[in-house]
Design a protein around this nucleic acid. Sequence first.
DNA 1: GGGGTCTCCACAAGCGGTTACATCAAATCT
DNA 2: AGATTTGATGTAACCGCTTGTGGAGACCCC
Lengths: 339, 339
Amino acid sequence: MGITIRDVAEAAGVSTATVSRALRGLPNVDERTRRRVQQVAADLDYVISPSASRLASGRTGSVAVVTPYIARWFFSTVLSGVEDVLQEADMDLLLTCIGDHNNQLNRSGVAPRLRRRVDGILIIAVPPSDPQLREIIDLGMPTSTIGLTVVGVPSVTIDDIAAARLATQHLINLGHQRIGIIGGSPSEAPFTAEFDREAGFAQAMTAAGLQVDPLLEAFGYFTIEGGEAAMTALLTQPTPPTAVFALSDEMAFGALRALRAHGLRPGVDVSIVGVDGHDMSEHLDLTTVVQPVTDLGRIAAEALLAQMRDGAPDIDPIRVATQLVVRGSTGPASGSTRE
Amino acid sequence: MGITIRDVAEAAGVSTATVSRALRGLPNVDERTRRRVQQVAADLDYVISPSASRLASGRTGSVAVVTPYIARWFFSTVLSGVEDVLQEADMDLLLTCIGDHNNQLNRSGVAPRLRRRVDGILIIAVPPSDPQLREIIDLGMPTSTIGLTVVGVPSVTIDDIAAARLATQHLINLGHQRIGIIGGSPSEAPFTAEFDREAGFAQAMTAAGLQVDPLLEAFGYFTIEGGEAAMTALLTQPTPPTAVFALSDEMAFGALRALRAHGLRPGVDVSIVGVDGHDMSEHLDLTTVVQPVTDLGRIAAEALLAQMRDGAPDIDPIRVATQLVVRGSTGPASGSTRE
DNA sequence: GGGGTCTCCACAAGCGGTTACATCAAATCT
DNA sequence: AGATTTGATGTAACCGCTTGTGGAGACCCC
């Protein structure tokens, strides 16, 4: 139970040092020796002890993924991209769910838990207001963020401003004029993506000579229920919008439900467009700006690995392109025949 | 950079052995000594080196989670329950996605990667036909499965037979007689849950004196698209069913879509019931048998921890209760006023 | 008051690798 | 041919913690 490197060395008639070098593909090992060692190791069913290797080398060969949620679509999808790359690179993936302040989970002290345990950290969309975020970044190890930008830290996100403009412009092109928006929360410290998407919306509206009517803004807190409530609020306005841009697909789902509850047809009576490219958006026939979420994770993981290898973090944020996918939830403004 | 236990020992004026015992709460340490050591450790911002501790103790303090998918609802939801418990127990969670044979990911050799790396393994719903499953189980370390039963291995699942009976009985109670079923796949080696749910359906039907009509069975391969296709097939039967039991919510979602495409109203023209309690089921107004998925993960993780502690695996499968949640997708059979 | 117990603690031998340095033979240079 | 470089391997000192063993002192009992 537990073949050691020593056993392999003896069986191969070399020193443990040579076994170590041979098995790890280091240079300065004769090819015949290497093959012999590999053969012996395989025969003996030898598996290196990670703990020993880590202790001796000082490298842990693992990366921590820190996320506020695991079960939500965006997060688990990013995670799957990350996992793919890390597995490919033969790195261990340590999954850590950080608490979310306004959530049931209020986990503190995630940072210390990471201290001597990993070589790099990937942070998925932790709200900038979370105090733990700083602690983790201040650990000073290779770090990269996804769906969130922190100055001085490499990040991978979509261009949220452009995405919002894309969605909004689509509605404008369809001839809509009274365009509403379902935002995240009225907080003063908005999420990066939230802030940018609002900005993109405003830019597109202004560029088209349309007004951003504060009465046509409601908040959905990035949940389905929230989106439903927000849409309901918008519909009960004296003059409701003919089209609505929801900052996330999940809120858009809620909005669709609200429409149905009011007997309104999506894409006919009221148009709804979201952002995300959520799995279900296709099945709910939602027009949305698709972001390549798996790729987000994949790219960030690769950037992190590069950073761990080269030591030089590439601070410039990586922006991934998005794509508008038009489905049935948007249609021409009534009385308009444009597009 | 890197306070060691020696530094703490010196600063506290004790041996490293005492520091080790004091910090880990072992007995045979004077309370005053312990407190002093703790204080010194805190002052020095000492963090134990996991690698060293693991090497010396032979315990890794980590658990691997093996899953065929990360981004799918069921799997990520289980995962979040698991993570919760493991974090609580101060265990590292190593996430490993196993390839899925008929999938793009065809990862082999997951088992060897786990060898000296973890103290226990949690397997989420890997198909029994997957050859890697055996390899992993044959590693011979504490293992527990979720949503899948392997003889001799502790498992946590819902009672799939009962769940299917519950769903089917609900349709029967509503007065339906021509009840169809959307199965997973016509394969000869069905997934455990798949097999049991089919069985539960048959049991309920037979008990009610109804026939299981093979013409009213279609296969949806546990995907939305598959469910849609299956439902479409059922609807194009000469005499289509008035109610359909889908083996999963995702297939039921597809079925709902098919209904809509055919201009049929769920719960009025045709009733649909699913199993899972998928996040979206509420928003799609789907009647379903809810399984407490997060709890599945939580319970399995706790069982695994117990097994790692006591060494005695509790082979008896743990069955978690399910609950029928009635929503708008089911309604009385036309011409029936029962229930 | 000498001979047990019982606590609390120090000593030191690992755990299983990695790697700087030493070694030595073969190859290359002058 | 002798000096020097080069490549392959061995030697051994760690890496930082855990834990079995043993000893010193406190406490108890007859």
